[in-house]
Write a protein that binds this DNA or RNA. Structure first.
Lengths: 201, 201
DNA sequence: CATAATCCCTAACAATTGTTAGGCAAATAT
DNA sequence: ATATTTGCCTAACAATTGTTAGGGATTATG
């Protein structure tokens, strides 16, 4: 009795692509079914409703993001290293699950009110993980004094933008992107100056 | 014979709020009409179609953003000052037209294919304005060597995120926000170090 | 006052939406 | 071999969608 059939995951994947492409509201059940070469009614043997699809995707991704940031906050010590690792995790998660990430990032607004609240809590959990890192950096006197919440939102928005233009065939690898963003962000935070652009911590 | 009746602007404003709140697809003509205490059919004496509403909002805002960046690129000389002014213009435009800006930023995906292409061109124009500034900064040896396109997208995503959390009643003014973001971004770009967090250019 | 324009209404349309009911066929388990 | 589960089908539903037709007021213009 597997928790999730293989077929359900196929539906989630197909739906994620369509939700990303056209938005949750604009992508119909018939669109999803059509992409799977199936009739719309057949979907309902694997899922309860369209909203359940959205919820599954959003909460699964939220859980993965949160797991990542918790691991970072538990293991690494130095704030800069923590931040760089957290960003790398984030970029990796996005580039390796572009469709589902897009849904997590932009389509959660369509969640039913019941789940919406819980989702926002989880997203706040994730942001809180970053806020802790920035605070730690300030306490360690490595980062400039900044409005923590403000800095975190700036960082996350930068990282999330990847989803708009990253493509697997592009010339930048996920690793390179993560490093670029990290450098950029660290420039905005770190106290010590870096004149050498090739500087690596 | 005014190009745009007053009533049409009211429709655009109401629609913008609903498009922002629920998304373009989810907000129906009856929702818009209802918010105006009017019947849905009555809207069609002022606008041609729902898509025309979206187009009006998107292109009007695009024009305003572009005007802003062109003015900056024509008048100011120093790259840092240009960038700070461009960011301030952007923040001002967003905070003073939050609903319409949200539509411009996030709902343009629903534009019909015909307008979509032109819209993307305009958005690219706007980004190109920022790219010029960053390039100028590198040439002037004020900015670090960075992937220009990359830096610009990072900057814009940071600035655009404002729309998610800015509220008129909040404690930060548009001016303060612009300064905060500018400082943060400049930290990531500028060659010279700033140890004093209260530093002003 | 007459004429035109502006603004909104009711009623209805065709299409599309998410979803359910009930059934057929193949694979799996007993 | 029988029973059960799994996966998909056709057909249809009620609701909602954007939009049009045609008409009745109220306001501005001559």
């Amino acid at each position: 009795m597997p928790e999730q059939s293989n077929r359900k995951q196929q539906i989630l994947q197909t739906a994620a692509h369509l939700f990303r492409q056209r938005g949750y509201q604009a992508a119909s059940m018939r669109d999803i079914a059509n992409a799977m070469q199936i009739e719309a009614a057949s979907l309902y043997h694997h899922i309860k409703s369209k909203e359940e699809i959205l919820e599954s995707i959003c909460f699964e991704m939220a859980a993965r993001f949160i797991t990542g940031i918790h691991e970072v906050n538990d293991i690494y010590f130095n704030a800069e290293e923590k931040l760089r690792t957290a960003i790398r995790n984030h970029v990796t998660l996005i580039t390796q699950n572009q469709a589902r990430s897009a849904v997590f990032l932009y389509e959660w607004r369509s969640l039913p009110e019941a789940s919406l609240e819980k989702f926002k809590e989880m997203r706040n959990d994730y942001e809180e993980g970053f806020r802790q890192i920035v605070k730690q950096g300030i306490e360690e006197d490595i980062f400039n004094e900044v409005e923590t919440k403000f800095a975190v939102l700036s960082i996350l928005s930068s990282v999330n933008w990847i989803n708009e233009w990253y493509s697997v065939e592009g010339k930048m690898s996920a690793e390179e992107i993560a490093q670029n963003i990290s450098n950029f962000v660290m420039g905005g935070l770190r106290k010590r100056m870096v004149t050498d652009p090739d500087y690596k911590p």
